[in-house]
Amino acid sequence: SGVNQQQLQQLMDMGFTREHAMEALLNTSTMEQATEYLLTHP
């Protein structure tokens, strides 16, 4: 699906929903950016 499943699982383990985590990974290129994205786009 174009996203790193390991990163997706890590974000879900942090408490984010699958949909939200996927959106973040699709819009960013690193785990750090994805986390930042999730925190700034709740």
Rank of each mutant, 00 (worst) to 15 (best):
S1D: 12
S1T: 12
S1Y: 05
G2A: 14
G2T: 12
G2I: 13
V3I: 12
V3N: 06
V3F: 11
V3P: 08
V3S: 06
N4M: 10
N4V: 09
N4Q: 10
N4I: 09
Q5H: 11
Q5I: 13
Q5F: 13
Q6I: 12
Q6F: 13
Q6M: 13
Q6D: 12
Q7A: 09
Q7M: 13
Q7S: 09
L8P: 00
L8V: 07
L8Y: 03
Q9D: 08
Q9H: 10
Q9G: 07
Q9A: 12
Q10G: 05
Q10E: 08
Q10T: 14
L11T: 00
L11A: 01
L11R: 00
L11H: 00
M12V: 12
M12K: 02
M12A: 04
M14I: 05
M14D: 03
G15L: 03
G15W: 02
G15I: 00
G15P: 01
T17H: 09
T17C: 12
T17N: 13
R18D: 03
R18L: 07
E19K: 11
E19D: 13
E19N: 11
H20V: 13
H20N: 10
A21W: 01
A21Y: 00
A21H: 00
M22A: 08
E23V: 10
E23I: 11
E23L: 11
E23T: 11
E23R: 11
L25I: 07
L25E: 00
L25T: 02
L25N: 00
L26K: 09
L26H: 07
L26Q: 09
N27F: 10
N27A: 12
N27G: 04
T28E: 02
T28M: 03
T28W: 04
T28Q: 02
S29E: 14
S29F: 11
T30L: 02
M31C: 05
M31G: 02
M31T: 03
E32H: 05
E32I: 05
E32Q: 10
E32V: 05
Q33A: 13
Q33F: 04
Q33W: 03
Q33G: 07
Q33L: 06
A34L: 04
A34H: 01
E36S: 05
E36N: 07
Y37W: 15
L38I: 06
L39Y: 14
L39G: 09
T40E: 08
T40Y: 08
H41T: 09
H41G: 11
H41A: 07
P42I: 15
P42S: 15
